[in-house]
Design a protein around this nucleic acid. Structure first.
Length: 865
RNA sequence: GCGGAAGUGGUGAAAUGGCAAACACACUAGCCUUAGGAGCUAGCGCCGCGAGGCUUGCGGGUUCGAGUCCCGCCUUCCGCACCA
């Protein structure tokens, strides 16, 4: 009876024991120097924000990465598997406000707590390379990179309309605005404000960021598409429309009443279009309400001024509501005219609320016949609608002069397809759209009134934040010398510790005289420090380079080490970073390459985005009350069961519905493994490593077959398919077979060397998924060394091969029966077996077999008539 | 509107174009007992007493053979969106 209690699987005993042993072995999870000759493997999971608590999403992310890392260690790779903390950010300031705890203290406390959780989960990180982005030895390199970018013209400052979250009391990057709301405050509308801001010129790399996506074959198509959309390249042309003042102005001037303001020469209006082939159909020019020409015209026209102010207000409201597409199109005529350079036609200039100043040139030519929006606008204001494109296919007859039932001219407007032929377009009539686009662009360039032009939706990255808990921007404002960079030897600009955090009145740093007041590095006169801090996405744009050389005090890292370890072999994280972090870090990598400190163009060769962890069909959240705490799970079922369930419940790329009964199930399974192995461990320990005698028993051969099939299945999945759910299922099948053979194991019918192979391999297969139990059972089997260094098992195809297989027999496409044949049976043998089958004979009775298709080892199909 | 992914039992899911539902959860019945969040046995897509028939969102197609490939829809989720 005492024996039974010994056999009980108790993770609460096993896991703390190994946790302690692993903690004492600093080299267990450490990467080796590059010179060791082993192939390198850099596996990286996205570093967490130290909120204080791991959530299930983290557990899933890290369970995937850790399984992979452990597998690669066992495969003999030199594995780099680091972890760190994305430790700057607003929550630390909010906590400071709420609890009166300094942000640094709050953050470091959270880090300690979460690190404990990670250790308890048995995650195999090399903590010697740990990085914490809020510490000066890390963020000084943010400042260093900022200055290098400044030198290369990649940093600039400008007044601009910015997204402002009233809740955060700071600016947000475009990427941080989601449906018009703050990415951290889902219910807080983002406002538009005008502020002087620091920008990083990510647009300088727009084309390369786009082109690079083609080569990132190891990245999910979804992420590549999202980035492509975000960069938003459109190819088109910019065309100048000459300005003609209004008839009223002309009359006034001629009558000498007054010299109208618009009589002076004005620059042409430059429009951007992707459809220059429709230019003969333009019937008006539309300007954004904030277009400089509008501002100027409105200055002399109080009526216009009021209306434009209203349009601006409408646009602002629409932006803030997040549903820009839904607002009603609305506009006002200026009374002035623009001249179409291709046919010298006069068309009215309007100001419209659907034209955006920050895209293209802020001015468009309106072609109602061939654009949905222009059509809607023209209908509303009774502007002319003209057809200049006819569908290419419907109206072949019309073009060659004969009549046809489907007149191209009848295709309903607006006709927006480019699959058409130009009509009513002067000498360009009859051309296809692409032909006309090319020729019209060339003509514009020759006439010096336009050119081909590529426009991107991607905007430069605004990195200024008016908050305290971030990297200080290393710049100084001097009355005499203007903007002066902090010299390298004065880095880091350290974030002061004693500070009062408030949510009002701009940056808390600005209220700290000892921080703000400095001497200008150039002239030595009193000057002011920049008080904006950097967006936290700066921290995470390059953190994975720092892991390889985390203690380096002379440089962000050693370039030689970077050449060895980069690119990252496998990056794993949530898809929510598809356009924020993942585009910024690609940009940063390209900048670093151009600074000549790395050799790779892209940070990561392969990217894996795991699905979300949900509960009862909804994302876990405090407000829904469906949050499952990892600590609870570990306390009840152990780290192994918690991790293994996270891998077993769904393939890693899909959303995972957390069901506690499932965790209990995995825990019971681990219990079965524990009892099985401990029951026969004495057989294994006393067994000499003799060659196995596979003829000894049928059951032994069957078990070895299953074992080697399982090895093959799991090894293959680690190659890239990563369906760890089926890997775990395969191990369960193996264990089920072993349990079913308990009588044969107990009786000694299975030779000891076979038992040894079965159990040792079972434990090895379990090691990436349930590291605690694997370590415990490895020791139980008499092994001294770390299982992490044991070689991953090899599948023996000879042993894995089935002796007899079942072949489905189809008759006229329907499954009729299944026949058993020897594994190597050829087509003839399979056909004979099928035709000899009673059910087949019954069905084919009185008919002739017209055709036989045999796929050896797979299936046989008979066609009978 | 553009782009991406998905749709299979009560549930999570499995299935290189070749026996749909492996593995597990839940459930049902039974056994065991040291009464445990334990263990063991059996059952568990639908219709049918059965033989058997039907079944992977819907409709077509390719094929000896389709959950899987192609075409057209529908639904759900995700991303982008007056981007000219």
């Amino acid at each position: 009876m005492a024996e039974d209690t010994e056999l009980r699987y108790d993770p609460a005993k096993i896991e703390p024991k190994w946790l302690e042993r692993w903690a004492a072995d600093a080299r267990l999870y450490a990467a080796e120097p590059a010179a060791n000759g082993k192939p390198k493997y850099y596996v990286l999971e996205m570093l967490p924000y130290p909120s204080g608590q791991l959530h299930m999403g983290h557990v899933r992310n890290y369970a995937i990465g850790d399984a992979l890392a452990r597998h690669m260690w066992m495969r003999g790779y030199n594995v780099l598997h680091p972890m760190g903390w994305d430790a700057f950010g607003l929550p630390a300031e909010n906590a400071a406000l709420k609890n009166n705890t300094p942000p640094r203290q709050w953050t470091l406390g959270n880090i300690a707590a979460m690190k404990r959780q990670m250790l308890r989960l048995g995650l195999g990180y090399d903590w010697a390379t740990e990085i914490t982005t809020c510490l000066p030895d890390y963020y000084r390199w943010n400042q260093w990179f900022f200055l290098r970018m400044l030198e290369r013209g990649l940093v600039y400052r400008k007044q601009s309309k910015v997204n402002w979250c009233p809740e955060c009391a700071t600016v947000l990057a475009n990427e941080q605005v989601i449906d018009g709301c703050c990415w951290r405050h889902e219910d807080t509308r983002v406002e538009q404000r005008d502020l002087e801001q620091w920008f990083l010129r990510i647009t300088a790399y727009a084309q390369e960021l786009l082109d690079g996506l083609e080569k990132l074959e190891g990245w999910p198509e979804k992420v590549r598409t999202m980035q492509r959309n975000w960069i938003g390249r459109s190819q088109g042309a910019e065309i100048d429309f000459r300005f003609e003042r209004s008839i009223k102005d002309i009359l006034e001037e001629e009558s000498g009443v007054a010299k109208p303001a618009t009589s002076q020469e004005r620059p042409a209006i430059r429009v951007f279009t992707t459809r220059i082939d429709t230019i003969f159909g333009a019937t008006s020019v539309q300007l954004a309400p904030e277009h400089p020409l509008v501002t100027e015209l409105a200055a002399h026209d109080s009526g216009l001024r009021a209306q434009v102010a209203y349009l601006i207000e409408e646009q602002k409201k629409a932006r803030e509501s997040g549903d820009v597409a839904a607002i009603e199109k609305h506009g006002v005529p200026t009374g002035h005219f623009a001249v179409n350079p291709f046919n010298n036609e006069l068309m009215p200039i309007w100001v419209a609320n659907y034209v955006l100043m920050d895209y293209g040139t802020g001015a468009i030519m309106s072609v109602p016949g061939h654009d949905e929006r222009d059509f809607e606008f023209a209908k509303k204001y009774a502007l002319p609608i003209r057809r200049v494109i006819a569908p290419a296919h419907a109206g072949a007859g019309a073009l060659n002069g004969s009549s046809s039932s489907l007149e191209p001219e009848e295709a309903p407007l607006p006709f927006t397809s480019e699959d058409g032929v130009l009509v009513n377009s002067g000498e360009y009539s009859g051309m296809t759209c692409p032909q006309a686009q090319k020729l019209l662009q060339e003509a514009a360039a020759r006439g010096a009134f336009g050119e081909a032009k590529v426009t991107y939706r991607l905007k430069d990255w605004g990195v200024s934040r008016q908050r305290y808990w971030g990297t200080p921007i290393p710049m100084i404002h001097c009355e005499r010398d203007g903007l002066v960079p902090v010299p390298d030897d004065q880095l880091p600009v350290v974030l002061p510790e004693n500070i009062e955090i408030t949510q009002q009145g701009g940056s808390p740093l600005a209220r700290l005289p000892e921080f703000v007041n400095v001497k200008c590095p150039k002239c030595g006169e009193p000057a002011r420090r920049e008080t904006d801090t950097m967006d936290t996405f700066v921290d995470s744009s390059w953190y994975f380079y720092r892991y390889i050389d985390a203690q380096n005090a002379q440089a962000p890292f050693d370039s030689a080490k970077a050449r060895h370890w980069f690119p990252i072999d496998q990056y794993i994280g949530g898809v929510e970073h598809a356009i924020l972090h993942l585009i910024y870090s690609r940009f940063w990598t390209k900048v670093m390459r151009d600074l000549d400190i790395i050799a790779n163009d892209e940070p990561a060769r392969r990217l894996f985005t795991q699905g979300m962890v949900i509960k009862d069909g909804a994302k876990m959240s405090k407000s829904k009350g469906n949050v499952v705490s990892p600590d609870d799970m570990v306390a009840r079922y152990g780290a192994d069961a918690t991790r293994m369930y996270a891998l077993f419940a769904a393939p890693p790329d899909r959303d995972l519905d957390w069901q506690e009964d499932g965790v209990a199930g995995v825990s019971r399974f681990l219990g079965r493994v524990y009892r099985l192995v401990t029951k026969y461990s004495c057989v294994v320990r006393s067994s000499p490593p003799a060659s196995r005698d596979r003829e000894a028993s049928q059951t032994a051969a069957a078990l070895l077959r299953k074992l080697h099939q399982t090895i093959a299945r799991i090894s293959l999945d680690f190659e890239g398919r990563w369906h760890f759910n089926t890997c775990v299922a395969a191990i369960m099948e193996l264990v089920n077979e072993l349990q079913a053979a308990d009588a044969q194991l107990a009786s000694g019918e299975i030779p000891a060397p076979v038992v040894a192979e079965l159990l040792r391999t079972l434990v090895l297969l379990l090691a990436p998924f349930a590291p605690y139990l694997a370590a415990e059972l490895w020791e139980e089997l008499g092994e001294q060394s770390a299982i992490l260094r044991a070689p991953w098992p090899q599948s023996d195809p000879g042993l894995a091969k089935e002796e007899e297989i079942e072949i489905p027999v189809q008759i006229n496409g329907k499954l009729a029966t299944v026949v058993r044949v020897p594994a190597g049976a050829d087509s003839k043998a399979i056909e004979a077996a099928a035709l000899a089958d009673r059910k087949v004979q019954l069905r084919a009775a009185g008919k002739t077999v017209a055709k036989v298709i045999v796929v050896p080892g797979r299936a046989i199909s008979l066609v009978v008539k």
